[in-house]
Simulated assay, not measured.
Amino acid sequence: MKLKVHEIFYSIQGESSRVGLPTVFVRLTGCPMRCVYCDTAYAFSGGSNIEIADILAKVAEFGTKYVTVTGGEPLAQKDCHFLLKDLCDAGYSVSLETGGAIDISPVDKRVSVILDVKTPDSGELKNNVWSNLDHLKSSDEVKFVLCSREDYQWARDLLSTHKIAEKCPVLFSPVYSQVSPTDLAEWVLADKLPVRMQVQLHKILWGEKPGV
Rank of each mutant, 00 (worst) to 15 (best):
T40I: 05
G211H: 09
D183G: 00
S17K: 15
N49F: 15
S139E: 15
V188G: 00
Y42W: 14
G123Q: 01
S95T: 14
L189N: 00
V67P: 01
Y10P: 07
L84K: 06
G47T: 10
C80V: 06
E73R: 06
V170H: 01
S45E: 15
N49T: 11
L28M: 09
P174R: 05
G47I: 06
D86P: 00
S139C: 13
M197F: 00
D183A: 08
S112G: 11
A60E: 13
A90R: 14
E7G: 01
V212Y: 02
V195D: 00
V179T: 05
G91C: 11
F44K: 13
P174N: 08
A53T: 14
I102T: 07
R27M: 07
F25C: 06
V26H: 03
Q77V: 04
Q178L: 13
K167N: 03
A41L: 15
V170G: 04
S148W: 02
S17W: 08
L21K: 15
H202D: 09
E208V: 14
V94D: 02
P106H: 13
Q77M: 03
T182F: 08
L158T: 00
Y37N: 08
E51V: 07
A155E: 06
P74K: 02
C80K: 04
G46Y: 14
H135G: 00
K203E: 11
E7K: 14
E124C: 15
K137W: 06
A155H: 01
Q77D: 04
H202T: 08
L87N: 02
S173Q: 15
H135Y: 12
V24L: 07
R18H: 07
S93Q: 00
P169C: 06
W206S: 12
N128G: 05
T68I: 01
R34M: 08
L184C: 05
S122F: 02
F9D: 07
K126D: 15
G207K: 11
R149L: 03
F172N: 04
W130K: 13
V26D: 02
L184A: 05
H6D: 09
Y152W: 10
F25A: 07
N127Y: 12
A76Y: 12
S112A: 15
D39L: 10
L193F: 02
I12K: 10
G14P: 05
K4S: 12
H135L: 04
A101P: 12
W206P: 10
V5C: 01
I8D: 11
F144C: 09
V170Y: 02
R34C: 05
N132R: 14
E15F: 03
G20S: 07
D157Y: 06
E141G: 10
R149F: 08
V69F: 04
K2I: 10
P120V: 04
N128S: 04
K203S: 12
S177M: 13
K85Y: 07
A43L: 13
P210F: 03
P210W: 04
L75S: 10
R27L: 09
V111P: 13
W130A: 00
G100P: 13
L115N: 10
G123E: 04
Q198F: 01
M33E: 00
S139Q: 14
L84G: 03
R34T: 13
G30F: 03
L189I: 12
P169W: 09
A60H: 12
G46W: 14
V107N: 03
D79I: 03
Y42H: 11
E208A: 13
V212Q: 02
V142A: 01
F44D: 14
D103M: 09
T161A: 05
K109G: 14
E208Y: 07
W154S: 02
K163I: 00
S131D: 13
Y176A: 10
R34P: 11
